[in-house]
Nucleic acid binder design. Structure first.
Length: 268
DNA sequence: TTTCATGTTCAGCA
DNA sequence: GTGCTGAACATGAA
């Protein structure tokens, strides 16, 4: 579930019931999801409280009353679940409060929980770009002006800008009727500014709707991510192509570009 | 049974 | 350094 809007929703979820409660016990069911030794996590979190939550891109940080921050990434299938009796299906790490538990529920175990002394230091070490909802129009234009290759992988590159993943990259490009294969350096400043605006609109709308896709406009492409789907705009058939190693859904009729990122030499 | 999946990382190559 | 591809991680769902 987790791209920027989902992680922002997780942030609010945690703020809404998991702050300032004492962690009486940390239970690690699968150390695969740990980016820190289990003993260290227990030592730092047990007896402590979560004071605040910060988000950068798809990364979450929980401030610990004992000092430093818990780093929490959700991978492809992770999510936080606060429960009292009904345990979720795939709890990998559990923070037990006196009368409730906050769990990292994650079937595929691609998420990671760790610790850092400073959010800034962590962002620097991971080389994460600016957050997609915080980046200014001018910095967006500047950073994408320096990129080469197809526009979609550039938008998903967390080093360039953090927060956009496969689903939202496709949606942002569809909203702007941009070909995901278009050479990013062929885009004008005006087109980049429009992309920045579309990106903010899509992310904000998703957060406003609680990331519930069923509440998204029917004009959105994300309702049409399956083989043979019809484009919500022109009714043509949605096509797929692999970009950045991920399946990309787009409407070849609506999303046309002057040039694609494929090298001419390779086509000869 | 096979294929795919809202992510990240790394090796190998141009 | 930049970009691209494929594989690995690990498991459920279609």
């Amino acid at each position: 579930m987790p791209e920027l809007p989902e992680v922002e929703t997780f942030k609010r979820y945690i703020e809404n019931g998991s702050l300032r409660r004492r962690v009486v016990r940390v239970e690690v069911r699968n150390s695969t999801v740990l980016a820190v030794r289990a003993e260290e996590l227990e030592q730092r979190a047990q007896g402590a409280m979560f004071l605040s939550v910060h988000r950068h891109g798809k990364q979450l940080f929980l401030e610990l009353s004992s000092g430093g921050w818990l780093t929490w990434h959700f991978g492809m299938t992770g999510e936080p679940v606060l429960f009292e009796h009904e345990e979720p299906r795939f709890p990998r790490v559990l923070f037990h409060f006196a009368d409730a538990t906050l769990a990292h529920d994650d079937p595929r175990m691609l998420g990671r929980i760790g610790w850092t002394a400073s959010v800034e230091e962590f962002v620097r070490r991971k080389k994460l770009g600016p957050d997609a909802l915080s980046i200014s129009k001018s910095e967006f234009v500047e950073r994408f002006s320096r990129a080469r290759g197809a526009v979609k992988p550039a938008v998903m590159d967390q080093h360039r800008m953090a927060g956009i993943g496969n689903i939202y990259a496709d949606e942002v490009l569809f909203q702007g009727r941009l070909d995901p294969r278009a050479e990013v350096s062929s885009l004008s400043t005006r087109e980049l500014e429009t992309m920045h605006r579309n990106m903010r609109r899509v992310l904000r709308l998703s957060i406003d709707k609680g990331t519930d896709f069923s509440r998204f406009p029917r004009t959105y492409l994300l309702h049409h991510r399956y083989k043979g789907a019809a484009c919500p705009d022109c009714g043509g058939t949605v096509d797929t192509v692999t970009l950045g190693g991920r399946t990309t859904y787009f409407c070849p009729a609506c999303q046309k570009s002057r040039g694609t990122a494929r090298r001419v030499e390779e086509e000869a």
